[in-house]
Simulated scan of single mutants.
Amino acid sequence: MLALAAHAETVLIANEPGPNRGVRAEAVSFIADQIAERTGGEVRVDQNWGGALFKTNAALESLSTGVGDMGVIIGAYAASEFPELQMAGLQLKAAHPWVMMQAVYELFTTNEQLQARLDEMNLEYISTFSLSPGIMACSGEGIRSLDNVPGTKFAHTGASTDIFGELGGNLVSMPIYDVYQGMETGLVECSVTYAYYAVATKLNELVDTVTDMRFGSLASLGTFMNKDTFEMLTPEQQEIVKQIGRDTINFYGERLITADEKAMETLNTGEDAVEFVELTDAEYEKMTEMAQPSIEKWKADMSAVGMDGDAMLEEFLQLVDKWTQVMETEGLPWDRS
């Protein structure tokens, strides 16, 4: 009987590129715990942290080929191969993190062309993680004006940083998980980061100034499963996994907002409080213009994989408007009575 029970158990080998701390780690653990609980232990997750199974830039290929069964893919590190995911990593329009996640979720689960692309890549979409609005964290004097950008060493962690390359900054390519070491050693001076993440990783201890970039929330991080693995699950187990993906948006969204508010307090008034800087309105307008080359490059990447970037962008922005309306009329799920 023990042998039969062991044989019936399905173990999903999962990979998370980040450390086992912070709100996304809580959400990753939530997914794993809920899968085990709701399947009655028939399916469980063997979770690897810190990219132990495969590194960030290998996530797409590793999940497609079955090196891992489940894990997080970050759009910035698969921009040319998986531009659909990177779309939510562009500076398009300001939206609440929960809204961004709902819009991405609906797009990935209803758009037929995107479903066909996922089949081609042998992936099953599970859920999405959003980021709070990006801030520019710097050691030393930092970015007090766009005139400070030329020659400054920026950690190039995603499309948002492309703006500073357009303005003459020195971009040093690295995953966001390496920024602490990069800033500690002087390899980089500045990095786009997020309040909750800066505090969770103790990056704030190295930071002297934070410049408000007026960036919107990004949602180009997704949890995916190898499709062959997903199809080996029973129909009931498949539906459980899908429902957990839907539930994760609310679970993570509430914790993200709470953690970000708390982190901003730490950055403002904590032992390692930093100086906050704002740019001029004209400089913010210039940054919006500087984001256009990244959007055009994304459209070219979409065309290269046979997708209509303009059409998908239009659909996505309509979904952002739809879910913004839901939030404004019904409130956020955790605030509803």
Rank of each mutant, 00 (worst) to 15 (best):
E328R: 08
A76N: 10
S220Q: 08
L206H: 08
E278S: 03
C190F: 03
V28F: 12
E231A: 09
Q47I: 13
D33V: 08
D301E: 14
P19N: 09
S127D: 09
E124S: 11
Y252F: 15
A52W: 01
E283Y: 09
S217F: 10
L171N: 02
A52H: 01
C138Y: 01
V172G: 08
N20W: 01
S145K: 02
F108C: 06
P83Q: 07
F82E: 03
D228K: 12
S127F: 11
A300P: 03
D69N: 15
I126M: 06
R117T: 08
Q91S: 05
P97Q: 11
P150D: 10
A159T: 05
M290P: 00
M302N: 15
Y180E: 10
P133D: 07
G245V: 02
L233N: 02
G51Y: 03
V67N: 14
D119P: 04
D162F: 01
T211W: 07
G222Q: 15
V67F: 08
S130F: 03
E166K: 14
T269G: 01
Q91Y: 09
V207W: 09
T269N: 07
E120M: 11
I176E: 12
S29P: 14
S217D: 05
N15W: 06
I163W: 01
M290C: 00
A273W: 02
L221H: 11
G134T: 08
K322S: 14
V45L: 13
D301H: 15
G68V: 01
L2Q: 12
D147T: 10
M213I: 11
C190M: 00
V67Q: 13
A282P: 05
F215W: 06
L114G: 07
E205W: 10
V72E: 14
R24L: 14
E61A: 15
E84N: 12
L123K: 15
G270I: 04
D281M: 01
